[in-house]
Design a protein around this nucleic acid. Structure first.
Length: 433
RNA sequence: CGGGAAGUAGCGCAGCCUGGUAGCGCACAUCGCUGGGGGUGAUGGGGUCGGAGGUUCGAAUCCUCUCUUCCCGACCA
């Protein structure tokens, strides 16, 4: 993609409406535009990142045996009246009427709908377990939306729902998701910390929230430092759940079961939450199956959420410096930024075009900065948008057959030949496209 | 929902107190000089000052109402 023909409206000024760094950077990097309070349009660069995150989440869900469906954003109030949540949800639920005066709502979550789908078709224990997920926009009319996409009113969420015959089976499904969540966040370059959580209004008795470490995070986490050392190949959910981990209000210094040396305190951002809630919804919404004795029994359910749009902001909170964003390669909008410092110089243009073609023909996604603007603007824009590798082609170095290869994650720059730069890039292991 | 603040050019802001033909920086356009970290000179375009009503000869400025946005708190799968 050529920068000049793409659409990345970068800004030099920090918009007054943005308070936290990820929100500022997302606006300055031309990723989003606010449409109204807590509601955003996703511009091309932001959309690319959103899709990357969505892809990783989807891939790990599929690998864990979950099956994708797609439920509507607009739901009828009927099922919610049945489950009793039409009243409970209060003003956070955006309620609307269709033309014939029927009560509708913009879905804040999907337990009701999915349970209805389940009970319409599944009647035998032989069809269990089932785990259905979808990735869909939700709307919660927050009293006070803030922090950009981290706490918007409209947000993209992956939510899934497991259905099992027994509590024990449900725990297996729960642990599968627990493992999938850890893998998902590790793949995004994040450090996930799992914490036992309060179940709140959703009900049930087992719940974990997943926070990712970021210096600017909202919550303070107290946890066993071994939780940071997770090998994605050998994740053991029971073991991970046995480690000590607590958020701010729940940590009690006096009764903390682990030593001071072992305890670590860091800031985190919540990006996922999983629940086991038994038969709460299945009973109300008639999700029964027959067991092997022919007896009707309510299925045991769990629900599992990942805030996909929130992750875009959360990842920036975890990966940025004073110049801009530093994308982990698995979620980066492009893998390589090819920067031609001197578009009027024939040698620079020629070398840039050759490299652009070669990188384009590989698995790498390249953004070619061919804009006619000052060098300073080019370099600072590219640091701002944070593509992991920059190849900088300038007149001075090119005379000696040298280009600069910059790693945006650590800002190290190597002066090497174009061939070496190309070989280095093509050898990168990229698990996610 | 309680408390606070702000709406003036695409973005960031001044002007308002003390009413008199709307300004700065960035961005944008044209031309020139530059050319390895937001370079520079000249010229130029762009705003019914969030909206409605009122006071006044005259309102961005004073008064009333209203809409929107943000911050602190409470709230929060």
């Amino acid at each position: 993609m050529k920068f000049s023909s793409f659409f990345i409206p970068t800004l030099k000024n920090i918009p007054a409406e943005a308070e936290i760094i990820s929100h500022q950077l997302m606006i300055r990097a031309g990723m989003i535009k606010q449409a109204s309070a807590g509601i955003y349009s996703w511009l091309p660069l932001g959309l690319k990142v959103l899709k990357k995150i969505e892809h990783i989440v989807r891939d790990e869900q599929n690998k864990a045996g979950a099956i994708e469906v797609l439920m509507p954003t607009i739901q009828s109030a009927d099922l919610w009246i049945k489950s009793g949540r039409y009243e409970d949800y209060g003003k956070e639920m955006l309620r609307i009427q269709d033309r014939s005066g029927r009560e509708m709502l913009y879905g804040p979550t999907n337990e009701e709908l999915i349970t209805d789908i389940f009970q319409s078709y599944i009647t035998s224990y032989k069809d269990l377990p089932k785990n259905l997920y979808h990735i869909q926009w939700k709307f919660r009319d927050e009293v006070r939306p803030r922090f950009g996409v981290m706490r918007g009113r409209e947000f993209l969420m992956k939510d899934n729902y497991s259905f099992d015959l027994t509590e024990e089976d449900s725990k297996i499904s729960y642990n599968k998701m627990f493992t999938a969540y850890i893998k998902t966040f590790l793949r995004m370059g994040l450090t996930p910390i799992s914490l036992r959580a309060e179940t709140g209004s959703i009900g049930g008795n087992l719940s974990h929230e997943f926070q990712i470490l970021a210096k600017t995070g909202e919550s303070t986490l107290y946890y066993d430092k071994d939780l940071e050392k997770i090998d994605p190949e050998t994740i053991n959910p029971d073991k991970l759940q046995s480690y000590y981990a607590a958020v701010d209000g729940l940590h009690d210094e006096k009764n903390c079961p682990i030593s001071k040396e072992q305890l670590k305190i860091s800031k985190g951002i919540e990006v996922g939450h999983i629940f086991y809630f038994g038969t709460k919804y299945s009973e109300k919404l008639s999700a029964f199956v027959q067991n092997n004795k022919g007896k009707k029994t309510a299925v045991h359910m769990g629900s599992y959420g990942i805030g996909i749009s929130r992750l875009v902001g959360a990842i920036i909170e975890a990966f940025h410096d004073d110049k801009g964003i530093k994308w982990p390669i698995s979620v980066a909008p492009f893998h390589v930024s090819l920067i031609n410092l001197m578009i009027d110089d024939k040698a620079c243009a020629k070398m840039s075009n050759i490299m652009y073609e070669k990188i384009s023909n590989s698995k790498l996604d390249v953004l070619y900065d061919d804009r006619d603007c000052s060098i300073g603007k080019k370099l600072s824009d590219n640091d701002l948008i944070g593509i992991p590798y920059q190849v900088i082609i300038g007149k001075r170095d090119l005379k000696d057959n040298i280009v600069q290869l910059k790693n945006r994650l650590n800002n190290e720059t190597k002066k090497i030949s174009p061939e070496e730069a190309l070989n280095f890039l093509l050898e990168q292991t990229l698990t996610d496209f």
